[in-house]
Design a binder for these strands. Structure first.
Length: 212
DNA sequence: AGTTCCCTCTTGCACGCGCG
DNA sequence: CGCGCGTGCAAGAGGGAACT
């Protein structure tokens, strides 16, 4: 937690509240307007504060967005829990579906800031990329472990299992990043089709190969 | 060119708290 | 109570970018 404001003053009760108001106002704004239109004075106005006050707590809008990104990154507990609990061998699809659903719920909850985070990370802003990677790594790592365990350690190297986990994670994330109302690629496919396909692919990766 | 908005800086005021 | 001090915030001004 930040304890010093930009003037070097210790942040007390009032300052803490003001900082929270600015963060809440920013979160509200990014869900209703394009991120590149977001300004410090706009955030301050939305929080019913003078624009100068914004600069008492943040250097710029990016610092606010980074904080919101980091905050969203801390909310992956439910996702990790789905991957950490023991999966019954005959219920892989059931667990895969639960994971995919949890992933969508996570994105539904944090879509605005996660999209901004990914856009900036893709645009080469290292701080956003670091937060994205730090958030994804525990999930990808767990998927990779399960892939390798299912496929057999002799059949698949750590490296290849991890690469497959990255691919399937990226695909699920890209689909979850869409707004549910927006069709992807084809008007014929709806969200349920895509979600089912994600579950199917994940189930295939996490099931022992069929010999024959 | 004029206007509007954004950002930054300086300055000062209001309030609360501790201390003698 | 009176005072000093720390904390929080805004008024006002000015430079600069973007828009009309």
């Amino acid at each position: 937690m930040v304890k010093i404001n930009k003037d070097g003053q210790a942040i007390g009760r009032k300052g803490k509240e003001t900082r929270s108001r600015l963060l809440a106002a920013a979160l509200e704004l990014i869900s209703t307007m394009a991120a590149d239109k977001l300004t410090a004075s706009g955030i301050a106005r939305a929080a019913s504060l003078a624009s100068q006050t914004f600069y008492l707590y943040f250097d710029d809008v990016d610092e606010v967005l980074l904080h919101l990104s980091a905050h969203a990154a801390q909310d992956t507990g439910e996702l990790l829990a789905e991957l950490d609990q023991p999966w019954k061998p005959d219920a892989t699809r059931f667990h895969a579906e639960r994971f995919v659903s949890a992933f969508y719920r996570y994105w539904d909850k944090h879509r605005a800031i996660l999209n901004i985070r990914n856009f900036r990370a893709d645009g080469g802003q290292a701080a956003f990329a670091e937060i994205r990677n730090a958030s994804a790594l525990p999930i990808v790592g767990r998927i990779a472990e399960r892939i390798r365990a299912a496929q057999g350690e002799n059949a698949l190297s750590d490296r290849d299992a991890f690469a497959r986990a990255v691919i399937v994670y990226s695909a699920i994330e890209r689909m979850a990043a869409r707004y549910a109302s927006i069709h992807f690629v084809s008007d014929e496919l709806d969200s349920d089709d895509l979600k089912r396909a994600e579950t199917d692919i994940l189930t295939l990766l996490l099931s022992p190969p069929v010999r024959g």
